[in-house]
Amino acid sequence: MMRAVLHSSVLLKAVMAVSGLLMVGFLLGHMAGNLLIFLGQDALNSYAAKLHSMPSILWTVRIGLLVCLLAHVFSGIKLAIKNRQSRSTPYKVKHPNASTLASRSMAITGCLILLYICYHLAHFTVKWTHPEFQQNPGDVYGMVVTSFQHPLIAFTYVLSMAMVGAHLYHGIKSAFDSLGFYHPFYSVLVCRIAKVTCVLLALGFSSVPVCVYFGLIS
């Protein structure tokens, strides 16, 4: 069975779809948490404290996410290798033939997002890039504000969110296709919701660094 999954393009795509959708679900929750920053320092910090007070749930989610991420990346790489091998000579004239830029650059946006995730974890979770944050781990608000006042960090985050937006612009509806969801009416609806979701996520996440950088939050 496992071997079948490893060799079947449809099953690999299904793995990508399920893991991807779960991560989108997580992102929605993550974004809601982030937006608490607009309610002030206490709201965000107490939310963070509450999460850390439930280690079992926190770690379940973290492990779940890690599994999703690994599965997504693994199947993505596996498929990408196969797909690259399927054409040895490229075309001289490149023509999109109705495909979107987002759909053609899933591998690139995916890789960039993976790099970003590593940086993001090093930044806020394990705090390697800012060892000084270790001194006051409960002040999430402070960490966010201090970080995003730095233009390069704010820019990196906004750019990465644009990547997430682009990745999900194609990814969400593609996931439904990969899982075989088709209905002449509801599929159109899903497609719209998917687009709204990816714009929402990109804007929602980006709003924090933008607002901090321009001093709307301090």
Binding site: S9, N83, A98, M106, D177
Partner: peptide, 17 residues
């Protein structure tokens, strides 16, 4: 899959051509 064709990325360019 064994013939070496790739997977579907749902770009829909096949439908267009």
């Amino acid at each position: 899959d064994m013939e070496g064709f790739g997977s579907c990325s749902q770009t829909k360019s096949c439908e267009a051509v």
